[in-house]
């Protein structure tokens, strides 16, 4: 698949898709979106690269082994739950901190966000692991 149009499109699309995936992840708690969709979106970007340029190039662009993403994602999700054990709360209780940003309003940060990032990375990693593996087989 060496279509020039596809390759050019992918070059343009990849950064957009990645930015959009992070956008989806971050706004997921308050608007439609979240770790699952975000992770899939990010994976879609690299899947396109993989189709247009081959998985070797896609891996080079990604730099990180998708298997590593799975591990980090699961670990993040797990640790977001373990944090609560210090505070003597049940596993996976959400803990929130409110940051006041003056005129910009306030920012609420909590362990569920960490958890969602874990979901994002896992989904991203799993999808790419599968696609790369299927492409490289044979």
């Amino acid at each position: 698949m060496t279509s020039l149009i596809l390759r050019t499109m992918v070059r343009l699309l990849l950064p957009l898709l990645l930015m959009f995936s992070v956008f989806l992840l971050l706004r997921g708690h308050n608007e439609p979106g979240g770790g699952f969709v975000g992770g899939l979106m990010a994976a879609t970007g690299f899947a396109l690269v993989s189709i247009a340029f081959g998985s070797t190039t896609a891996r080079q662009v990604l730099r990180i082994d998708p298997l590593f993403l799975i591990g980090v994602g699961l670990l993040l999700a797990l640790s977001s739950g373990l944090v609560t054990l210090w505070l003597n709360q049940p596993f996976l209780t959400g803990i929130w901190y409110k940051l006041s940003l003056g005129t910009f309003g306030k920012l609420e940060l909590g362990t569920p966000l960490l958890f969602d990032i874990g979901v994002y990375l896992t989904v991203w990693g799993v999808t790419l692991t599968i696609i790369f593996a299927l492409e490289e087989v044979g």
Partner: peptide
């Protein structure tokens, strides 16, 4: 849970 998207 400080979240507005209930599904999430």
């Amino acid at each position: 849970a400080h979240g507005r998207n209930i599904v999430n």
